[in-house]
Structures are given as structure tokens and as C-alpha cells.
Design a protein around this nucleic acid. Structure first.
Lengths: 369, 369
DNA sequence: GGGATGTTAGAAAGCGTTTCCCTCATCAGC
DNA sequence: GCTGATGAGGGAAACGCTTTCTAACATCCC
């Protein structure tokens, strides 16, 4: 009963394969394979004939079979912290575009900061035999990626990773952008500048915080312990951190946040108080997600280019996967950051705009166009 | 030169396969396969022995080989409109969780409203021989999915799709939520309510707009043509649409937006004018993305549950893939929507709160907890 | 007790590729 | 003109699994 499956349209029977092409072009399947893979030892005329046959019968190589025999799946793994933080979709988008252009698919997975989940994610990636993995999280416990390291998968990390032959690292220059942010605030007259970090068990969070401390130090500004609060890279965390800051030490005149989501939480927390942004408190974010310019007020933030990050990641992975792709065994790929000034930062109330310039003029860094 | 690959750790040689297990358990590979696939004709004692062997040698079935021979990849395709619209990551997350729990991987791709891109995406999915595809966009040109339909891939659409055996449709009840929104505004005293739609070539956009018209009609409120403006589901589009609304017919007292991103754009546009939200203009979104509650002011919006959408989609796909999974050949899966009231809606200025209740009280629908 | 039936596990045939190995032809060198 | 080198293309063996077919053995009924 039911469908008889006798028709030609059923996908389980319709597939045209390499033999059909070989028959039509009157060559062996080995030659077809060589043509498809652009192996240069095939006579040009013959290749043309094969391409013609491929076109005529509508041949598409079977990915599964290819992967089985070659051991390469042409899938890249991409591990992110959480997919619902808008920074990551932007990164995923860029990464995927580049990967697809190079003939790869992307297998994406969030860790959600959960070890069990991360472990299962990595296991799944290994089971699908990805050709390489980009670990683009805010930090990851090293033991979790141990299996990938052992099996010598090409790997890319952000900020820091084990120093091994096929491991590459994207070095984000946090110092640069954060220094610009601190100098921008200082130039406006701010002295009491607070910092809301990411979860401090994440390496990146520590790095960003230290960059802040260093920049403050360079300007001779002190950073009391109470001015640094730990957030968790979410809006909720930012809101809670700001509330803590207000409760414990009263409002600082400016807050720098470890990412834009935190900054959004801060804006939200301040909206529920008598303090206005930027007149009472200036707020600076980090990442420059697309949303940042649509916040009220539009967010001054440190831009970290997704595109640069994605390009370096794909490039670095290919260097590890495709033999002789990149001659230099480059291990570190620098990623710049820069401040984008919008409207969430201003003179602290009561400060005379003596030393600094009038709003709208040059304010120490790139002004959003 | 270079590494010699003689070590045992290299992943290209280390794989333990079904033969190793068979040898260890002193059975044939056929039996191992049957055990792994839980085919019930295997003697229980024997199965135990095989599981033990599997555990001892650390066997993991090779996905590629499985897919090659069975013709099923255990990958589900998920087509979305754009990955950078926060609604979709939330959906992706839910969908992926469910799919993984059922032993599937997910291959995600955005159309970005671009036909060429969509076509290539679908081609890639077919090449990877996904077991089924969920088309969860705001709408899609039917000819693009034609190939999937022809090849009889199990398919799930939102709102509308061809009426064919293995095509299921998720029917979102837009009317419900939008009616609540209109009634909520009307109860507050609004009469001049505008609507910003999605791009009208998308079927979903038309459906949402019509639901708005209908609800207005039910209350005897007129909808002049100028009160309906076409947006494009982005913040930029929302901003532009609101500016058009202000320029052409002056400010309405309330605006309902086709999605939350549009509403964010509207808030942004109004922030640049003398009109305040909600005192001068009330704004209602659609989707209830996580971000909505962190907007300034927090956004009143119609909630469409990602979780419900994802659950129905995965369930519907499985019904199409796994024979006898769902006995009833259910074709339509209803998805409810409901209004969530936050702080972007209020009495229009100058209206006496006579007929409606005081803010904070019951306001016609669920109040955000 | 013998033939029919039922149950369980092994042998082997694929699935659609890539790639190794070998043949056969061409050609240069002496 | 013969030999050895070179190079293009075909045959066939993997790759690791699922599934059909078949054999072996136990069970049952008359």
C-alpha cells in the first residue's frame, strides 16, 4: 500500500553518479574523478569532454562518499560562547560567507558557558570529522579541547591557546581600543571611571580588565577595587553590575563595559534611577555590534571587527588544513580594535569644557560617520 | 622532512572501526551493526558482550560511512531570513537543542532576502543530503524551494506552503496577538494607530498587516492608507518608516510594528524628534525577542514563542523523515501569539484615564512579570 | 521421526568516491 | 632499431558501514 516508489523522482533512486559520467564521456571513473578534482595530469581535450558529460547528465559528486574515502569532510567547526549574544551571529555570518566561498560548510555550536554542553559539542564535531575548529569564545577551559588537540585537528583560538604545531591564535589588541576609550573619557574630564568585566574565569575577560587597568595607570588615574565589578557578558549581568556599583560606591562619572550587551544592561539600570546618560554617567561598550548605534543614546564603543576576526580565522584554519596553503607557518594573527564615539559619552556634569573640545568636534577618536 | 606521521596519535590512522569491535566481541560486523542500531533480533547476552567491546575499544561509528550506505545524513536544514536579526538566533538555539536531542545536526543558512544566495544555500543542503528542511523565513519565493519539493524532501514551512504529502505547515495565529495589541491600544484611548509592515513581497508581512486591518475594523477604527508604511524588518527600515510616517501625516498616537527590530528603529527615530515614548507615541513590537525588555522604554510586544515554533518544526520534520513516527498525517501545526505589555505603551497625551485603568493595573493583556 | 516453520547470526554485496598501481604508448638517446 | 625514461589513463582496491541473503540450528506438529 501507499506510494510505490516506482517513479523516477524519488531522491533515493534518482542520483546520477560518477559511473554515468564515465560511460557518457567514454572514460574510466578514475579520470572523471581526476577531472572533477582538477588534477592537472589529464589531457585538456579529454577534460573538456568529461565536463561536457558532467553537465549533460547533471552530475553532482556525493559528499558522503567523498568524505568517507578522503577522510576530509570539508566542514569547519565554529564554537562560540552563545548564539543569542548578537556579537556572535555577526561573526558567524562573516565566517560562514568566507568558509562557503572556499567550499566548506560550517558546523556552529554555542558552549553557553557549560562544560557538559561544550564537551558534547566537541564530540559531535569529531564524529562529523570536521576538518578544523575555530574556538571563538570569550575563553574556554583547556581540558575541554584536549581531545581536539590530541587528535591534531587544526585549531584556531582567540587570545590564547596551547603552543603546538597546528594551533593558531588570533591576538586581539584590546589595549589599543581600551586605551582610546580611557583617553577619550579622560579628555572629557572624567576621573572616576568604573569597569564592568566579563566572568573572570574567562581568559578574555581578564585580559580586557587588565588592559583597562593599564590604560588608567598610564594616565595616573587610580582604580579602587570597588570600581571594577564582575559581569557576565549579558544584559542582565550588566544591569546587576551597574546596580551593585551604584549601591556600593555611588555613581561613577563613566563606565566602560566589557561588551555591548553589558552596556545595554547598564543603560537599562541607569534608566531606572535619576541618573541620565550621558549627562550624569557616560557609558562605553565593547564589540560594536550593529545594535550599538540604535541604542538610546547611541553607544560609544570599542570596535572589534567581526570581519577581520572571521577572515583571520578562516585563513588560519586553511593554513592548517590545506598543505602548502600558507608557506609561512604563521602562528599569530593580530586583530586591531578602535574606539567609535557616539552619544553615550559626554562631559561629566559640572565640568567646564575648557580642556576638551565642544561636543561634535574632534573628541579623541573616530567619530561615527 | 616534516612530521613523519608514524605516531599513533594522528587522527588519520587512529580510528577504531566496526571490525575491531567485531573481533573483540567475537562476532561478525553485521551483528555489531545490529547492536549499535538497536535492532531487536539480537540475543540479549550477545548484545551485552558487544556493548562491552564497544566501550573497551572506544568505538564511535563513522558518520560518513553510515550516511553513504543508508542515504540518510542525520542533518536537518534550517533556512532563516537573516542570522543577524536577534529573533533568529533564538529560534536557531531552540531548534538546535531539540534536533541534537534527537541525534540530528543542524545546517543553518540565511537567505538574506537574496534569491541567488538562497538558491546556492538550497543546493548546498541537497549536496549534503539533509534529511529534511525547515524553511523558517518571513516568506520565500516558491520557485526557489521547487527542487526540494521535486525531490520529495520532508519540508516544513511557516504560514503557507504547497499542499503536498511530505510538506507540513506551521500556522502562526497572528490574529490573536495583533488583536490583543490593537484592543490594548484602543482601551488606552488610541484611535490613530499606524502600522509598519515587513516587505510586502513576503507572505508573512502581508498576513500580519491584514491581521492588523482586521482587528482595527472589528473595533470600528478606520485605517487610512497613509497609516500603513512598508518597512523591511530591520532597525534601519523601522527608522525610515517612522520618519516617513512623521513627514507625511504627522505623528500617530500609536504604532504597531511588524517585528521588534522595526520597533527599535522606531524608538530611535522618535528619540530624534520632540515626541516621547510612550507619552506622545505608543510603540508595539512583534516577536518578543529577549532584547525587547531591555529597550528604553521596555517594549510592549506580541510574543511569538520560539520554543513552540522550534518544537513544532522538529516534530513535523521527524514525522516526515522517520516512518511511523507520527501516526496522524498531521499537516498543520498551530502556533499561538499573545501580547506582552511593558512600558512603551500608555494613554495618549491629553486623554483622561476615564475608560481605561490606571497604568500598572490590568491593561488588557498579560503584563510582563 | 521427519518435514515444515521460526529464529538468530554470518557472509557478502553494495553505497560513490579517491588513489595506488600498473599498463601501454610515446619519445629521446645511443 | 633497441632500451629506458616519462606520462597519461584504466583497473581495482580501499574507505566503514547497512542490509539482504543464506545457512545453521532449534522448535513444532502430525
Amino acid at each position: 500500500m501507499g506510494r510505490t516508489n516506482k517513479g523516477t523522482s524519488n531522491r533515493h533512486h534518482a542520483a546520477v553518479n560518477i559511473h554515468d559520467v564515465a560511460k557518457r564521456a567514454r572514460v574510466s571513473i578514475a579520470t572523471v574523478s581526476r577531472v572533477v578534482n582538477r588534477i592537472p595530469t589529464v589531457d585538456e581535450e579529454l577534460a573538456k569532454r568529461v565536463w561536457k558529460a558532467i553537465d549533460e547528465v547533471g552530475y553532482v559528486p556525493n559528499t558522503q562518499a567523498r568524505a568517507l574515502v578522503s577522510g576530509r569532510s570539508r566542514i569547519l567547526g565554529l564554537i562560540v560562547s552563545e548564539i543569542t549574544n548578537p556579537f556572535f551571529p555577526e561573526l558567524v555570518q562573516e565566517f560562514e560567507n568566507l568558509a562557503v566561498a572556499q567550499g566548506y560548510e560550517v558546523m556552529i555550536g554555542p558552549t553557553n558557558y557549560d562544560a557538559a554542553r561544550t564537551e558534547s559539542l566537541i564530540r559531535r564535531m569529531m564524529q562529523r570529522s570536521v576538518d578544523g575548529v575555530a574556538v571563538m569564545t570569550f575563553g574556554i577551559e583547556e581540558q575541554l579541547v584536549q581531545k581536539l588537540v590530541e587528535q591534531e585537528f587544526p585549531l584556531v583560538f582567540v587570545d590564547a591557546g596551547p603552543d603546538l604545531p597546528n594551533i593558531r591564535v588570533l591576538k586581539v589588541n584590546y589595549g589599543e581600543g581600551i586605551r582610546e576609550a580611557v583617553q577619550h573619557l579622560a579628555a572629557l574630564g572624567h576621573r572616576r571611571i568604573a569597569f564592568i568585566s566579563g566572568p573572570l574565569r574567562m581568559r578574555t575577560a581578564v585580559t580586557r580588565r587588565d588592559a583597562f587597568r593599564k590604560s588608567m595607570g598610564e594616565l595616573g588615574l587610580t582604580v579602587p577595587d570597588a570600581s571594577i565589578v564582575e559581569g557576565n557578558h549579558t544584559m542582565e549581568g550588566g544591569k546587576a553590575a551597574m546596580e551593585q556599583l551604584l549601591a556600593e560606591s555611588g555613581p561613577p562619572t563613566a563606565v566602560i563595559c566589557s561588551n555591548d550587551m553589558t552596556a545595554i544592561g547598564v543603560l537599562h539600570a541607569l534608566d531606572e534611577t535619576k541618573y541620565r546618560v550621558p549627562k550624569d554617567v557616560s557609558v562605553v561598550g565593547f564589540d560594536d555590534i550593529h545594535l550599538a548605534q540604535f541604542m538610546l543614546p547611541p553607544l560609544t564603543t570599542v570596535q572589534m571587527s567581526c570581519k577581520a576576526l572571521a577572515m583571520a580565522a578562516v585563513e588560519a584554519l586553511r593554513a592548517g588544513i590545506e598543505p602548502g596553503h600558507s608557506k609561512a607557518a604563521k602562528k599569530e594573527w593580530p586583530i586591531p580594535t578602535r574606539l567609535v564615539v557616539r552619544r553615550s559619552t559626554d562631559f561629566p556634569r559640572g565640568t567646564l569644557p575648557a580642556l576638551a573640545q565642544a561636543p561634535g568636534g574632534q573628541r579623541g577618536a573616530a567619530v561615527d560617520e
